[in-house]
């Protein structure tokens, strides 16, 4: 009955595609299933257009799902480490308070639970996880 415990793994999950791409949903479904299966997620890494998920300003039509909100709630409620590639984020106008102030932009549109950091965080996550899975490539 507890056999599956022997197989608990640390997953690093990267998402490369934006909120409008089916990959954003696939990655979330996978991450949820990983936790439901008793596994750990050591880090989530958002790269390329996936950084748009970290913007608090996007508004979805009422009859469509709000994938960014779902990701945010999933990350917060499970207290996951969600790293957004800082270079990709700056290019696309996804800035937290510190970056908005550093680059003298009028607003910050990103904050908790997202963390802006470098690609090295993805490298580090891939090295330390048992399995690394990329979505949206």
């Amino acid at each position: 009955m507890f056999e599956s415990r022997l197989n608990v793994m640390k997953f690093a999950i990267a998402l490369l595609a934006g909120p409008q791409d089916p990959a954003a949903r696939s990655a979330l479904s996978f991450a949820q299933a990983a936790l439901d299966g008793g596994h750990q997620i050591s880090r989530l890494f958002f790269y390329r257009d996936a950084v748009h998920l970290a913007s608090d300003l996007a508004v979805q039509p009422q009859d469509e799902s709000d994938i960014a909100r779902e990701w945010r709630e999933f990350i917060s409620s499970n207290e996951l480490d969600a790293v957004v590639c800082i270079a990709a984020a700056l290019r696309r106008g996804v800035l937290n308070e510190a970056e908005a102030s550093r680059w003298e932009r009028p607003v910050a549109n990103s904050g908790q639970p997202w963390v802006l950091s470098g690609l090295g965080q993805w490298v580090d996550a891939m090295q330390s996880a048992d399995r690394a899975v990329t979505f949206g490539s």
Binding site: S29, F30, Q32, D36, D130, R131, V133, T134, F135
Partner: peptide, 19 residues
Amino acid sequence: IDYPTFVQLCTQYDKVLSW
């Protein structure tokens, strides 16, 4: 398969390569 099985497959194979 469904997502729980996808996760399980990831544990069975030694690595995952996304195309």
